[in-house]
């Protein structure tokens, strides 16, 4: 028994603890009605069935479609804005650009409750309240800070000489952006798109304040399913897993980009 083994044993113990909720979710979702009860939470199903999954999918699928309509355009627009801002704030600065950046960053930390009441009012006045476009607008605007930050930090690693050389050759700001900067921006786009997709997909606060029943995303639908006393537990758990599938796939396949987004959230920490 060396220190090494103790560390490994502890880490494995934590793996078990971290996976406990996943175990319960999975086994319950495959149970028939008679077994899906808290008193049998830790037991494996005696009879395995995918019945709950089929019903859960039927209930959740409209929300699924809405979530895609929300998260795909939302994350693409966010990435485009973030790239432009990050480029200017790192390579084509203007007087006061540092202050602008700091003022942007504050937007990353504000609790959205602080803007929600006026935002609802504004959306009602603009006639976009209740629909998906309004929700996309909100996510894009409040995503500007983090997207700008990720691109700015990424572009800081491009040598200034490269930009300067392009300038000397007579290329303007947009030309330089398109021909020098965009071609090397792949990783930053991946980080931002994944980050925004995940937060748009998982969002509940904006959705619950800004959308009506026909445009509820998967999170709100799931919360309604889970809140209803009449829905069997096996269906609730299957719905919870289904609602997490898209972000889990991204996490498993592209985890390293997800990580970089997380680290950017800590500013330069």
């Amino acid at each position: 028994m060396t220190i090494r083994h103790v560390r490994l044993a502890l880490l494995l113990l934590f793996v078990l603890l971290f996976l406990l909720p996943v175990y319960v979710l999975l086994v319950t979702s495959f149970k028939p009605l008679s077994e899906a009860d808290p008193s049998q939470a830790w037991n494996l199903p005696r009879v395995w069935t995918t019945e709950a999954w089929a019903v859960a999918w039927e209930k959740l699928s409209p929300g699924f479609a809405n979530s895609f309509l929300l998260a795909v355009p939302g994350s693409l627009i966010s990435a485009a804005l973030g790239a432009m801002n990050g480029y200017v704030l790192s390579k084509w600065r203007f007087p006061g650009s540092e202050l602008v950046f700091t003022l942007f960053l504050f937007g990353m930390f504000i609790p959205y409750q602080g803007v929600m009441i006026p935002l609802v009012q504004l959306m009602v006045n603009l006639g976009v309240y209740g629909g998906i476009p309004g929700l996309v607008l909100a996510h894009v605007v409040y995503g500007i800070p983090i997207c700008t930050l990720i691109f700015r930090n990424y572009y800081a690693t491009i040598p200034d000489e490269l930009i300067e050389a392009s300038r000397v050759d007579g290329a303007g700001m947009l030309r330089t952006f398109a021909s020098i900067v965009i071609p090397v921006s792949g990783p930053a786009f991946a980080v931002v798109i994944i980050w925004q997709f995940t937060s748009l997909w998982n969002d509940f606060l904006f959705a619950v304040f800004l959308t009506g029943p026909s445009s509820w995303p998967a999170t709100v639908m799931l919360n309604n399913i889970a809140g209803a006393q009449t829905v069997p537990y096996s269906q609730q758990m299957a719905a919870a897993i289904l609602a997490s599938v898209p972000t889990m796939i991204i996490y498993v396949l592209l985890g390293r980009f997800f990580m970089r987004g997380l680290m950017a959230g800590a500013l330069k920490g």
């Binding site: 880490l11 934590f14 319950t28 997380l262």
Partner: peptide, 23 residues
Amino acid sequence: FRAVYLFPMAVSFIATGVVWRWL
């Protein structure tokens, strides 16, 4: 190990809340 400890970040609380309410 890192993948296991970090995965809850990728999932919404609305989803995991369903099981935590039970636990």
